[in-house]
């Protein structure tokens, strides 16, 4: 069983590489954020697999829950940011800056 777990973990990691390519070259910023989101969910899966390899899933599952929850928070914040800044472009620009970093 350990063999299958190791193989699936390595396969997961290898399949993350194209998504990392999308993070690097993604034409728009939202492309990158979607790719980061996908990698985040897969990292939660990978944490469970690593925990099974260490025979210690009871501990690693807590990391995975925290990771999955905070990952959603990040992508939601990014979506809100892009949703707000652009349509409000003309109006906010009167106070000097158009977007806060």
């Amino acid at each position: 069983m350990d063999f299958i777990l190791i193989c699936s973990g390595i396969a997961l990691f290898l399949m993350m590489l194209p998504i990392m390519y999308r993070i690097v070259v993604g034409p728009t910023a939202i492309d990158r954020i979607v790719a980061v989101n996908v990698i985040g969910t897969k990292t939660a899966v990978l944490l469970i697999i690593i925990g099974a390899l260490f025979h210690n899933v009871a501990m690693f599952v807590d990391f995975a829950i925290a990771y999955a929850a905070l990952n959603f928070l990040g992508s939601l914040a990014a979506a809100r940011y892009f949703n707000r800044t652009r349509p409000a472009y003309g109006q906010v620009s009167q106070e000097g800056g158009d977007a806060d970093e």
Partner: peptide, 9 residues
């Protein structure tokens, strides 16, 4: 990991 577990597993 540095956690001693008596219960579980």
């Amino acid at each position: 990991i540095p956690i001693i577990s008596h219960h579980g597993e």
